[in-house]
Design a protein around this nucleic acid. Structure first.
Length: 420
DNA sequence: TCTGGGGTCCTAGGACCC
DNA sequence: TCTGGGGTCCTAGGACCC
């Protein structure tokens, strides 16, 4: 038996934990730079705020309807997520943290008459009491079906109490007939359109299609999914593995035209990638740098390019990666364009312990003690206190975050105050 | 004025090997 | 009409997820 545990309106719920007066009030959370809506409370959804809505277009609605607006506070959401996941670990021998607000649990070794419904209710109570975050749970014999069950739990929260179990053939069929094909986990926009054109409207319809046809149209990915929906498990639990690519990319608050600015941004992105690599004890063997203009501005000339540079040896040194990032930027930067976004992606990641020394290059690991020291200092006195000179030492650059809430759970001076 | 930031997997085709 | 028969690796592009 699998369970999919999902936090309800996660970012909005995190904000609400520390501002309980916002219970039952509409809340939205914005993306970086306060660009567009990435999370909504149920009340905000009912008021007609769509996912991805540009904030500037909806400002009037926010004001008129008294919608509470927040900038993204990832320090808070990440910490709250860890708390939820830590509690969930107590309930199953295996857990897969699927995203910041979702986890699969796999149950094994339960007695034949084990009451999963009751167990799910207990998990909900413990997590909500321990963190303040409301959750929904779907349980079923496969991962894909537990996703379906979760959707039912959430959609019919009053009837289900936020926990739904698919444990009979009858319930499985009923659930699949209720699920629209475009809402199935693993069927995206494109496949949904194609399936609908062939009169395949529900998850149940999809399970009735011949296997070789599914295989041909949607590859083994689609076939696995079909089996999962039929109740045949094909998807394993994914334990935490080191990332294969690591990206740091940002849109700018305003268009940048100067090479000088972009070089600083790209250097900072490279440093962040290096830090992420060191945190997972990996090195990368290639680095990609990209820049592009604002695709929404049809009136401006457009330019978009990337370059992948192989590295002479595996590295996670901020210094080395910054140097290559600058070199890459020089290769692709063109004067005369208004750049809106840039990013650095480190690729071809290998474990730190496996070091192939290059015959013709100098000692590739000479930066390691320095990097360890920087990491240690930044950890003890606050992130990003020690920087490279190529970064924004003068703090010239800042993300727009006008509605940022305090980091209640990770900064001692921002901790919530309770008045006597 | 303003429109996010991450990830994964699969397939086909090209380039190469013997 | 005919033009071998295996392989591997890499990349771009497509599809999906949160």
């Amino acid at each position: 038996m699998f369970a999919l545990v999902d936090c309800n309106n996660f970012y909005a719920s995190c904000e609400r934990v520390f501002q309980p007066q916002l219970k039952n009030k509409p809340i939205v959370v914005l993306s970086n730079n306060d660009g567009c809506v990435i999370a909504r409370s149920n009340e905000a959804k009912k008021l007609g705020v769509p996912m991805g809505a540009p904030a500037f277009e909806y400002k009037e609605l926010f004001d008129k309807q008294g919608i509470h607006v927040f900038s993204s506070n990832y320090a808070l959401y990440g910490d709250m997520s860890n708390r939820v996941m830590t509690l969930l670990q107590e309930f199953a021998p295996e857990i897969e943290v699927y995203s910041i607000d979702e986890a699969f649990l796999r149950f094994e070794g339960m007695l034949p008459n084990f009451d999963f419904q009751d167990y799910g209710n207990i998990i909900r109570k413990v997590v909500t009491k321990g963190t303040g975050i409301p959750i929904s749970i779907g349980m079923a014999p496969t991962k894909a079906l537990s996703k379906v069950a979760n959707k039912i739990a959430k959609k019919f929260a009053e009837k289900t109490g936020g926990m739904y179990l698919i444990d009979t053939e009858e319930k499985r069929i009923k659930a699949l007939r209720w699920t629209k094909v475009e809402d199935v986990w693993g069927i995206g926009y494109r496949h949904a359109k194609r399936l609908q054109a062939l009169s395949i409207y529900t998850a149940y319809d999809f399970t009735q299609q011949p296997e070789d046809w599914v295989r041909k149209q949607m590859s083994v990915v689609g076939l696995r999914l079909q089996n999962e929906l039929k109740g045949i498990p094909c998807l394993e639990m994914d334990t935490v593995q080191p990332k294969k690519n690591i990206a740091t990319t940002r849109s700018f608050d305003f268009n940048q035209t100067e090479f000088y600015y972009l070089r600083e941004r790209v250097a900072t992105f490279a440093v962040t990638c290096a830090e992420k690599l060191r945190a997972q004890k990996s090195c990368c063997n290639a680095i990609m740098i990209f820049v592009h203009t604002n695709g929404h501005r049809k009136d401006l000339p457009q330019y978009s390019r990337n370059v992948v540079l192989p590295l002479p040896y595996p590295t996670n040194s901020s210094i080395t990666l910054t140097q290559f990032a600058a070199k890459g930027l020089e290769m692709i930067f063109k004067q005369g364009y208004a750049y809106k976004k840039a990013g650095v992606i480190v690729m071809d990641i290998t474990p730190e312990t496996v070091q192939q020394i290059n015959l013709f290059e100098n000692n590739p690991i000479k930066h390691r003690p320095l990097m360890e020291t920087i990491d240690r200092i930044n950890k003890s006195i606050g992130v990003k206190k020690v920087k490279l000179a190529s970064q924004d030492v003068g703090r010239t650059w800042k993300m727009r975050q006008e509605k940022l809430s305090p980091r209640y759970t990770t900064q001692i001076n921002e901790i919530i105050k309770v008045k006597a």
